[in-house]
Amino acid sequence: MKTQHGESVLSRAARILEAFSQDTPALTVSEIARRTGLHVATASRLVAELVAQGFLSRDDDRRVRIGVRLWELATRASPTLSLRDAAMPFMEGVHDVVGHHVQLGVLHGDEVLFLERLSAPGAVINYSRIAGRLPLHASSSGLVFLAHGPAELRQRVLAGPRTAYTPDTPATPERLRAVLAEVRKQGYAYCPGYVHEEALGLAAPIRDADGTVAAALAVIVPNTPHAHTLVPVVRTAARGISRALAARDARDRRA
């Protein structure tokens, strides 16, 4: 169904859902209208319909947030379910060793999208979170995807712009090319202080049955020399997840 302005109702509803973020999980109707560019009356009507369907919910103070039904449907149909199911036992094992953050990321556009994360009280600072994103050039998971991804992806990222979060972030084309060459050579990304001076990211590729890099397993730990001892832990777990994915794929093909 098209509105009189040519935009479908579904498109407007999608704009409303996209107005929410992890930093702003609850919004008033007026805030939704401002963020979407919709008239307040239009936003109010669509919000009411989305609430009635369970896709949005209202707090006691009338602020609006994403509804449980939307999460339920997204989780039920997610193409990443098999990846998360295969990865979780290995992530738990790695977490027992590192005691800080262990996360699973996939490539989405020109960013890393994090599907899962295990943390602990008092763990080192970490800017990533479940359903959050980070740029490819600065994160250990992102560098894995850049190093093993298509040339067009590297060209786009190298063309910039790239944010330098710290003095150690590989933000120049020359530095980034050197880092990517090292990732391909050693088989993992080792990123001391790339996003925060106190944190170090370490990531290894997870491959599907065809050998394509499908995801990245990463740990975020304190930026100390001890982090080097975790390289075999992360690489072994990533290979284990890759084998589990291949086994699942083989079973699916036989079914």
Score class of each variant (00 low, 15 high):
G211P: 10
L176T: 07
H196V: 02
A215D: 08
A19R: 09
D61F: 09
P135L: 05
V64L: 12
R239I: 00
E111M: 08
A123K: 01
V231K: 02
E72L: 11
A227R: 08
V219N: 12
H95F: 02
E72W: 11
E182N: 10
V234L: 04
L83C: 01
S242H: 07
A218P: 04
G54L: 01
A178F: 01
V144D: 06
A74H: 09
L113W: 12
L107P: 12
A33Y: 08
A43T: 02
V233D: 03
H100L: 07
P79R: 02
S242L: 01
R63K: 12
H228C: 06
L180H: 14
G142V: 01
L17M: 09
T42E: 14
V98S: 03
T212S: 12
A247L: 13
K185G: 02
L10Y: 04
T212W: 14
L73P: 05
D210W: 04
A189Y: 11
P25L: 04
H148G: 06
P161S: 11
E49G: 08
L158T: 06
L113I: 01
Q103D: 10
A14Q: 12
R239C: 00
P121A: 13
D59R: 15
R235I: 03
A48I: 00
T42R: 10
A74G: 11
A151G: 08
D59K: 13
A159N: 13
R251T: 00
P161L: 11
R62K: 15
A43G: 03
L81W: 01
T229A: 14
N223Q: 06
A209N: 00
R12D: 07
V231L: 04
E152D: 15
V221Q: 01
L158W: 10
S140C: 04
A87K: 06
D168Y: 10
R129E: 04
H95Q: 13
T166Q: 09
D252C: 00
Y188E: 10
A215I: 03
